[in-house]
Simulated assay, not measured.
Amino acid sequence: MEAFLVSTLAVAVGEIGDKTQLLALLLAARYRKPIPIVLGILVATLANHSLAGLFGQWVVSYFSPDILRWLLGASFIAIAMWTLKPDEMDDAGIKEGQLGVFLLTCVTFFFAEIGDKTQLATVALAAKYSNLSLVIAGTTLGMLIADVPAVFLGKVASPNFPFHYVRWFAAFVFAVLGLLVLLNVGSF
Rank of each mutant, 00 (worst) to 15 (best):
V151M: 01
E96A: 08
F102V: 04
V176P: 02
K33H: 09
P149L: 04
L177A: 05
A80K: 12
F163D: 01
D147L: 03
F110H: 13
T122G: 09
I79S: 10
L120N: 05
L177W: 06
V60F: 06
P65S: 14
S133T: 03
I136L: 06
A170I: 06
K95H: 13
L39D: 05
S75W: 09
M89I: 06
L51W: 03
I79M: 15
G186H: 04
H164E: 11
W82Y: 14
G14Q: 10
P162G: 10
S50H: 05
G53L: 09
D116A: 12
L42M: 08
A12W: 04
D90W: 04
E96P: 11
F152M: 01
A137N: 01
I35G: 10
P159L: 08
L71D: 12
M81I: 13
A137W: 01
V6W: 15
L125T: 04
L132C: 03
V59F: 11
I145E: 00
A170Q: 07
T105E: 08
T139M: 05
D66Y: 08
L182W: 02
V166A: 15
V181N: 12
V13K: 04
F169V: 11
P159R: 11
D116M: 10
V38K: 03
L51K: 02
P34S: 09
W168H: 08
Y62T: 11
F188P: 00
A124M: 05
F109D: 00
A78N: 08
G154L: 07
K155C: 00
A126H: 03
M143P: 04
I37T: 12
V148E: 00
